[in-house]
Design a binder for these strands. Structure first.
Lengths: 165, 165
DNA sequence: CGTAAATAGGACCACAGCGGTCCCCTTTCC
DNA sequence: GGAAAGGGGACCGCTGTGGTCCTATTTACG
């Protein structure tokens, strides 16, 4: 598992669709039809994204939604965070004053922080712009060997995203 | 959110505890008491981990569980995968022959694959051994500047884990 | 050889949270 | 002033998770 919710999934689909024609304004119904997602749900998601300041909304007739920022300035982490709450694999991270079981697990906490950071980072380093224009292949084939290629891809992904901004 | 289940969380706590005295054998009750986790649940998790060949079990009196491999050869990804199923943020990854909404979202799929890979990688690059002996600080402070530090940390984390093996 | 201590394997249940719908209000254009 | 849009909730079914319990089966030991 280790899933994000469908809301976040849908949110990314919607944002990506909007990023395809950045600057333009879309109505909820329009987006629902184009993405084939249930209209009420689309509307709900757009409202949340607006409240989180990822979208601008215009009420009234001829109203609709548009991206609040440049496509390169909106990351997956933000969208997921807006719809699914803080990005953290474990629960005992945020605060939890209580006695988190015992020492062994708490000795573990520092490591979880690292893991959470790594994941948040991976998500922060993918922008909406990249979702529309997939990264070139070179980022995937930068490495060479079968195992270390992974590390290379990770670094390359981050660096690549950085370069795109 | 973006959470993993408590099962996986508990599983890591248990495995980490066992890694503290590698080679030794623990009974389910013993581990439950030491970690302050509910005994039946601990038992359930240990069974699953055994079935996934992360633990060896010995039945009968004087029985118990012990790590199936060296602590450096067991990764977070394996433990989580064993308890929570395949590690993938999105659902439409595995197979799903159906029509995954439309083109826009499917154009997105390649990028999701990258993100999933990055996360899986982050999890694969943390071994049980590291959970017991936290990594030195240098891995966190390798970078320098506020923003690019992130990319450096990511790469450093992966590389560091690699080096530990 | 029998008993106790351990794992193996399920069946089972309660409940939170997610996915999804619907309704009513407000805003704005024509 | 009416129609078309978003704003803000209330609401509800259902899946899956967290957790318990029961019944084999295995094995050490007296």
């Amino acid at each position: 598992m280790l899933r994000m919710t469908k809301q976040a999934d849908y949110g990314i689909v919607l944002m990506t669709r909007m990023a395809g024609e950045a600057g333009r304004q879309f109505t909820a119904g329009e987006l629902a039809e184009e993405t084939q997602l249930p209209a009420p749900t689309v509307s709900k998601i757009l409202k949340i994204l607006t409240r989180q300041e990822l979208l601008d909304s215009h009420r009234g007739v001829k109203g609709g939604y548009s991206l609040a920022r440049d496509t390169a300035a909106i990351t997956m982490a933000e969208i997921i965070g807006a719809l699914d709450g803080p990005i953290a694999i474990t629960e005992c991270i945020d605060d939890s004053p209580g006695e988190c079981v015992q020492e062994p697990s708490c000795a573990v906490r520092a490591n979880w922080q690292r893991i959470n950071d790594a994941i948040r980072l991976a998500l922060e380093n993918v922008t909406l712009a990249e979702m529309v224009h997939p990264l070139p292949q070179r980022l995937v084939t930068l490495g060479g060997r079968p195992s270390p290629i992974a590390a290379d891809r990770l670094a390359a992904g981050a660096a690549g995203a950085e370069a795109l901004r």
